[in-house]
Amino acid sequence: MTKKIQNYEIKIPAKTENLETIRNFIISATKSLDFHEDEMNKILLAVDEACSNVIRHAYHFKENLMKVNLRIEASRLTVTIIDHGKSFNPQNVKTPEMDKYLKSYKVGGLGMLLMKKLMDEVEYDIKPNSQNKVKLIKYIK
């Protein structure tokens, strides 16, 4: 029997105090998947980083709404973070070289790198002045 696709969504003001609510939403929506704690921690951190980027960079701490959509298919979990704030071109964001980064005592700019390291796939769908989507994908084994 084919498993049904499950969809969950939360629409929430983009502010840092809601990061905890978003983490709890992810935990409760993925309960049936029985992810190993290590995998679960990776997903939570990746979502947290994506949402923190929206709050800081897309909305500049103005409390606009953001959406977090979670889709469970047979082979993958996709968490999509959607905002209508300032757009960016992910290709223009330089991936930090960690050796140099650490030696020069830099601060910030690690969110996108972390997402990439923590998830199986990260996709960006940016429509300037309209909508930004970050898709975080984890394969279900």
């Binding site: 951190l45 947290d48 980083e49 005592y105 690690l110």
Partner: peptide
């Protein structure tokens, strides 16, 4: 129990 890059950034902000 949990740390994100914002937490890591605090240490980087003072280490120098």
């Amino acid at each position: 129990d949990y740390i994100s890059s914002a937490g890591l950034g605090v240490f980087m902000g003072f280490i120098e």
